[in-house]
Write a protein that binds this DNA or RNA. Sequence first.
DNA 1: AGCTCATGGCGAG
DNA 2: TCGCCCTGAGCTG
Length: 269
Amino acid sequence: MPEGHTIHRLAQDYAERFQGTMPRLSSPQGKFSDAAALLDRAELTRTEAHGKHLFLGFRDSDWIHIHLGLFGKVNFGPAPAPPPTDTVRLRLADATSYVDLRGPTTCALITPTEKQAIHDRLGPDPLREDADPAAAYARVSRSRTTVAALLMDQKIIAGVGNVYRAEVLFRRGIDPYRTGRDITPGEWDAVWADLAELMREGVRLGRIDTVRPEHTPEAMGRPPRVDDHGGEVYVYRRATQPCHVCGTGIRTADLAARNLFWCPTCQKP
DNA sequence: AGCTCATGGCGAG
DNA sequence: TCGCCCTGAGCTG
């Protein structure tokens, strides 16, 4: 379940196992059979991530565009690959390993032109070298929309999802309902820098950890936290529980069909 | 067995 | 803003 860090990690993992090899491609589910047949035993030449979009490059100019959506999952394993279940959209397999893709919103064969169009409609990605935070701020600072909604808008900044949005706003002490035009350049710089650091750590660890050392359960004398999404966070899915910093009950609300979480004390208007 | 919910995003109105 | 698409886990009964 994917925010940008997951996708960048997947780009690395696909490359580590298959780059330079000519894997078998198949679509046991059937929805990607034609393209899989076309690229069967073609060389995987490179992989790339931009925000939540994953690109697998074959030969010189064939790309598979993958977007996991909310439900998509990727599972790697060692050869021999087990018989696939009927929900596997795409399997890559070679002599040493296999990888199964299930439930993606998108899995499509695209041209370099179509790939470029996807890059063009995405905002800068804090995990990419070519990212320009000023381009994002130019749009944020002109908008009357809430900063919480802007952070989820992939045209403005690519790769941030519901967890990073809630956590970075908490860490910077920013009320989620402030508007974009109310965010100062200094605040945006700090949000961007924080996201870049948190997401890089997310790629490395494969999970979202946002709690500073001084606020961990051990440091605060609290019992160790058990959470079903795996990471240590300040506010995400902690509605009504006490804030790790000030003890105020964490609040939650619907914002653009997603659950928003924040501390009304630590995040001042 | 059926319901609800989840780190996402699209198109219609 | 709503409905819809993709899947699976964790409930309830």
